[in-house]
Amino acid sequence: MVRVLMLLLPGLIPSWKFFKTIEPSPRVQWRLSSGPDHTENTWQEFRPRPERVSGAEIVKRLFWNPDWNEALFLVSLAERLTLHATPRSAQEILRRIKNELLSGQLSDHSVNYLQFRLVFLHREGEEIVEEVTYLSQFFDMSEEAA
């Protein structure tokens, strides 16, 4: 209860320092393998943003934007996981990737071991640099599907 009240305090006494600096920005990437020792598949970005969004879609998203808001939550989770590697943030990210894989929204693969990683993008001089900050263990998807 004390922890929840501590989480409430920044809401009641906010700092409002939006975008004070542009911090490194996370991407969640995943891959499936046939086993923990086989990492033959390449990393894929989870929920990549579309190339374009139409005007009608933008208007719709003013009222109905669950996927994007979940993507913003994933950004928060990735930042929390990098700052303090808590199992809870990792589980939240994993659960969302698993759900999409099991519901067939992602590519169909015959391999069962899921792994995800966090890649942070930041600028060094004029270059955009990627840095892997977290690599999960392998999770057996067949146990979930059973």
């Binding site: 409002w16 004070k20 943003r49 374009r52 950004v75 930041h122 955009i128």
Partner: peptide, 30 residues
């Protein structure tokens, strides 16, 4: 929110907003 931007040279030059568009997770499309 405005003050913390104003005291940051990267915001005053527009560099910070360029970074938002360049690599942050926020732009809704590529």
């Amino acid at each position: 929110s405005g003050w913390v931007k104003l005291v940051n040279p990267e915001w005053r030059t527009g560099r910070a907003l360029r970074d938002v568009f360049a690599f942050s997770a926020y732009p809704v499309s590529e």
